[in-house]
Amino acid sequence: MKQKSKLRMRRTRFIFFMVLPAVVIPMIFTYYPMIKGSMMAFQSYNLMNVKNIKWIGLENFQKLFAHSASNSFYTTMLNTVKWVGLSLLFQFGVGFGIALLLKKKFRGASVYQALIFFPWAVSGFIIGIMWRWMFNGTSGVINDILMKIHLISQPVGWLADKGTALYSCIAANIWYGIPYFTIMITAALRGVSEDLYEAADVDGASPLQKFTNITVPCIRSVLLLTVLLRVIWIFNFPDLIYSMTQGGPAGSSNIVTSYMMQLVQSLDYGLASAVGVLCILFLVTFVIVYMSITKYAQEEA
């Protein structure tokens, strides 16, 4: 008996010390700053004015939602919706299409997959630099190609124009995100049992019927999870906008997180943190609503 409890002690101690570093480090360097940062949202915390740091309640939030001509937060929120919605829609659509083409393995398929997956390993910042150069208004290659196929008659300043800056960034983001969907969905498609399709063939099902009645239901949970993860990821992803336009011209291509980054850089931590708190609230709400609509959680359990 004593022997047994000694063993138990040893086991508990082992578990404790093995997990310890992986818990303590994020506690101090992720959770603590996160909580402290959230608290700053209720303070006037401006490093340009350090003597005046004090609690101010909801004043930062009021400043964000104030109705005035100089307030760009409403545009920023609308931009975020466009940024996430359009990016996701096209990444998912094209990614799914390519995945269907890749489903049946062919010679060189794995090399092909590796090649198209490569952008995923490159930072959004670098991708943004590349697209900024391609979208260049005076000597950009995109203008050149579009003029050669007669879609436009003269060079367009894609990133310098308020009307096109955000959409140019979205186009680049779509390009950047397709590989992830392709890889995930291809893997899921290849996991669907071939027997199901054979049985459907015997019953004389059309390709469309096979798609809606076998393919989609079989990979549904993968699709739902991928979309959920991607929404969070795209929402939290200002890197590309940061290097393409810095949110400009005149804030017209800012999304919420790139706006927040600018506030941090202008040292207005209080206001920046208020934006951050709103982001967290939004994401938590989104995840809960998404899960309850799709019943994802129950299905997994």
Binding site: N236, A272, G276, I280
Partner: peptide
């Protein structure tokens, strides 16, 4: 709880941590 602890860190916008860090 431990797994949740790790998952949450992946969802937080990291910008909120920049100033305290």
């Amino acid at each position: 709880a431990l797994l949740l602890f790790f998952l949450i860190t992946q969802m937080i916008p990291m910008f909120i941590m920049l100033a305290p860090l």
